[in-house]
Design a protein around this nucleic acid. Structure first.
Lengths: 215, 215
DNA sequence: GTGGTATAGTCCCTAAGGGACTATGTTGTC
DNA sequence: GACAACATAGTCCCTTAGGGACTATACCAC
């Protein structure tokens, strides 16, 4: 027998509610902002962003205000007081840890079933992805330093999140560059590659030094 | 009119195929190994792992061998030659970049709608997650150094992937520790927190130094 | 007035998430 | 040697998410 009560709104729903808490928006605006904000830490399909505010309204957490742009309808959603309370309660509970989906790494992981070249291709792709991210982070960071960034009033909090994403991109870039150096010295058949024991020792040492620095 | 031909098998399907390429396995073994291998870079629900080999067999990429353990049926799946070719072709094409799902960071990102304490709670949770990961990576790394790691013959390739995951955990730990220091100096209302401009300048400098080191 | 781009969405099929549920084998203990 | 506890080996099913095709109006430049 199933014993579920009313299920808690999903993380995606609370994420959208958080965006509406910043300011009221239409679904279209929501979808646009998403890529540069929420979507960086909680990626979702575009179509779902159009459904979310409707669910939030059903739950009494948001309210819709119909309007018009010319003859075209345009619905603006805003958070309700009940929504603010639900959001604050949800935000105070610890969330789940990071989950990574990384197809390029997956392909490197199975390189022995293809070729060294396949691993190189995917490491280059990962490095290029990271470099594009780094360029974007530089542009956004410079804009904030010049005072022209968006949502300047959210800068303190944005900086915490943005720093993580920037450091993540740097980690990927540095790892991919290192890995390319290693993999390019492999024979064509990756099954014949010698493991890089020195690198393993190095990483274990670094991990241990972080562990011992916990007091 | 939709013009889709036969759709390509999904990343998850190829991932399972990659595991079967290492050695034949039952769905149950697959599900067990998953958490320590494929699941680290391509997480999927347990139930899907039981479906994947069936789809692969339909596609002619895997073959099932029925067997028995006592009176209980046990089906072992293995990759076919066609499966090996399909896998090699897929592995050679560049995959998609990393996608991150990070609920704790999301909650920090919306901290202004809750309290500084909520941000602290989630940063601590992130740091604890990272520390648990670091401990695991140390254990696995030590096992390999002592020659007792699993799939020792895959070590060269495992090291590339494992190094990334270890560096990712270290990045999270160091970021969370830094962020906790910043956030704990905030007033109770995060909207009143002063942005840490010096930290922003520091990150932008580091990003730029990585960019200029590309030749 | 017309073509291109931005706005503002809907529809729908497939994939994935994830918990409840079932049943047998294996091992340790009193 | 009975029985509990844990590991093995899955199935079922409802909800959520992914993602591309499709539609239509508004605004701007030429």
């Amino acid at each position: 027998m199933l014993s579920r009560g009313k299920p808690e709104p999903s993380t995606a729903l609370f994420g959208v509610l958080g965006l509406l808490a910043v300011r009221p928006m239409s679904t279209y605006e929501l979808a646009k902002h998403f890529d540069r904000s929420l979507g960086r830490v909680w990626p979702r399909a575009r179509s779902k962003l159009f459904e979310a505010p409707k669910r939030l309204e059903e739950l009494g957490l948001a309210r819709s205000t119909p309007g018009l742009v010319g003859r075209r309808p345009r619905t603006v959603y805003s958070i309700t007081p009940k929504g603010r309370r639900a959001l604050a309660t949800w935000l105070a509970r610890p969330g789940s840890g990071p989950e990574l989906e990384f197809e390029q790494l997956l392909k490197v992981f199975f390189a022995e079933h293809a070729s060294t070249e396949a691993a190189v291709t995917n490491l280059e792709a990962a490095r290029d992805w990271a470099r594009a991210q780094i360029d974007e982070h530089i542009a956004v960071g410079r804009a904030y330093l010049e005072g022209t960034g968006t949502f300047q009033e959210r800068l303190a909090v944005n900086l915490i999140a943005g720093t993580f994403l920037a450091r993540f991109a740097m980690t990927v870039e540095q790892w991919a560059t290192w890995a390319l150096g290693v993999v390019q010295s492999w024979p064509d058949d990756p099954r014949k590659a010698a493991p890089n024991i020195a690198a393993l020792e190095q990483v274990v040492r670094e991990l241990e030094s972080i562990r011992t620095s916990r007091r």
